[in-house]
Amino acid sequence: MKSMKDILWVQVVSRFLLLVTASVLVLVFFSMSVSQPLLSQISLRKRESTEFVTMGQALGIPGCGLLVQTASVAGVDLHQPLDKLLQDKRFRQSFMDFADSCLAGESVHFFEEVHELGKIPLDDPVRRIYMARHIIENYIVTGAEMEINISHRTRQEILGTLDLAHPDLFNHAVNEMMQLMKMNLLKDYWSSMNFVKFKEENPRQPDSSEPAGWDLSPRLSCVRCTDNPFNHEQLHKCPSGRKCDV
């Protein structure tokens, strides 16, 4: 009678233990697959090619890397808000060159990578997670090489996320960057050589005129470009400008 009781007790305990371990394993499996997809899945893709310029290219996101000559990019309505303008690859490239020359390029690079992340379909979480991790390592983590200027709260929110495939993961950070770019860079960009070049390369469409309210005044010569050593003299005369030749 006593041994029967003992057996029953052992059975209960062992079943309970089995259940606990199983549920722990399930949890571990799911959390792993969300934060770090199984290596085997990705290694197949990685072996195909060796060196990529951007993470977007490495993950095979369409439209990444070099500029592709397409007719659709020709007409850019410059009246649109900055976030819309930056959707255009050529404009983004031109704006990025300008921001880089002002030592403020990380904001635009970050925007571009998040933009590329947005192109990965939602039903492809593995690639999304890899891209998200790449962005976090390069732009979000404190001390990262291209760390962006965001608030403590936004950074903690991203670093503490449980779902790296979430479509809104970087929304707050993008918002903050957009404000930063608008307030710091946009006005000076309109009067920069980068914008002049952009206009030359993309002749205006009949319906898109230049945005009103900014002047192409002396600032034009302020931007020191690394490829033009004689810009220095002009710079000395100009009232103010962004530092460029570092």
């Binding site: 921001a99 200027n149 930063l180 860079l185 103010s240 400008g241 962004r242 530092k243």
Partner: peptide
């Protein structure tokens, strides 16, 4: 309030009109 990012520079001479002893500064 604008949170600055990157580098901005300006050149000026604090003396103004009488340029005799005016030092030229470039402020970053």
């Amino acid at each position: 309030r604008v949170r600055t990012t990157g580098v901005v520079e300006i050149q000026f001479s604090p003396v103004g009109e009488s340029r005799k002893s005016g030092e030229v500064y470039r402020l970053y």
